[in-house]
């Protein structure tokens, strides 16, 4: 049983988080996709991969088309009122969904950690926020913890040398070792670890605009470490990080293909053609 959000560790008794593995052994699930504003506009392929994988596994994907953004930019920059409005919108939108998945660790962790504290305890809003937090899963953690996917068994195959960027916001969601295990279950994939893999890439949302020198220095170090692995593909586990790292790689003429874990899994299962570009 996974713990769906750090803040719940103490407050929600064991066994009450979202889905129990035994509850859905052979049932096909209805899974709602929260695509996030960045993936929708900048990385649609990662969302397409999510849909294809879930359908391949026999589940139904629903996509409420009026979804927009979780409010992370407002929340992180101190605009609490605006974040609250967007949170309320999200909660309403996904209220009836038993499982919500998103290809973004930072958006998932916002729903897990921040949504419940945006509302006063004891109110309906708070209860609904806790409900959504329980039901929301970052896509890779959904595969691992709820759907119990065994990539080897599914015959996943992907030829190439890949490295992996572990995003900071995944800390309370899935461990780096867990993702690495999944990568190693793909036949043909040669995995190489980045030096100081757990170090932030320097994105941090508006941090990159407020402190361009600091952020630039951090991402240059990250790119240097990525280049040193000699990998041809970087599996980048958050869209914000991808924008940052990909932009810095281009600036520094480091030729590397950057894809999300969902794209890698979809490619390895033959659900997506292996493209040439980011």
């Amino acid at each position: 049983m996974r713990i769906s959000g750090y803040h719940h560790c103490e407050s929600i008794p064991h066994g009450q988080h979202g889905f129990h593995k035994q509850h859905r052994s052979s049932i096909d699930l209805r899974i709602a996709l929260f695509i996030t504003c960045l993936a929708d506009n900048y990385f649609p392929r990662s969302g397409i991969a999510v849909v294809k994988i879930l359908e391949y596994l026999g589940h139904e994907v629903i996509f409420p088309r009026i979804q927009t953004c979780c409010g992370q930019p407002m929340y992180n920059n101190g605009y609490r009122k605006e974040a609250c409005q967007l949170a309320r919108r999200m909660i309403k939108l996904f209220r009836d969904c038993e499982i919500v998945t998103t290809p973004s660790g930072s958006c998932a962790s916002l729903v897990h950690d921040a949504y419940p504290q945006l509302f006063t305890e004891g109110t309906q809003d708070h209860e609904a926020a806790v409900g959504l937090a329980k039901n929301t899963y970052e896509f890779v953690s959904l595969l691992k913890d709820v759907l119990d996917v065994d990539l080897t068994q599914l015959g996943a195959r992907w030829e190439g040398i890949a490295t992996y960027h572990y995003s900071c916001h995944l800390r309370h969601i899935i461990s780096q070792a867990d993702v690495e295990r999944l990568l190693n279950n793909i036949e043909g994939l040669e995995y190489r670890q980045i030096e100081s893999a757990d170090q932030c890439c320097g994105f941090g949302g508006t941090f990159s605009l407020h402190y361009p020198d600091l952020s630039g220095s951090m991402v240059r170090e990250k790119v240097r470490n990525i280049a040193e692995t000699g990998a041809e593909t970087l599996i980048c586990h958050d869209n914000g990080c991808t924008m940052n790292i990909a932009g810095a790689c281009r600036r520094q003429n480091v030729a590397i293909r950057i894809i999300s874990p969902s794209e890698l899994f979809a490619e390895s299962l033959g659900l997506l053609e292996r493209g040439a570009e980011l």
Binding site: D198, C200, T206, F207, H210, S215
Partner: peptide, 8 residues
């Protein structure tokens, strides 16, 4: 503001 909120 001088933090990427990386959580380390």
């Amino acid at each position: 503001k001088a933090s990427s909120l990386c959580g380390s």
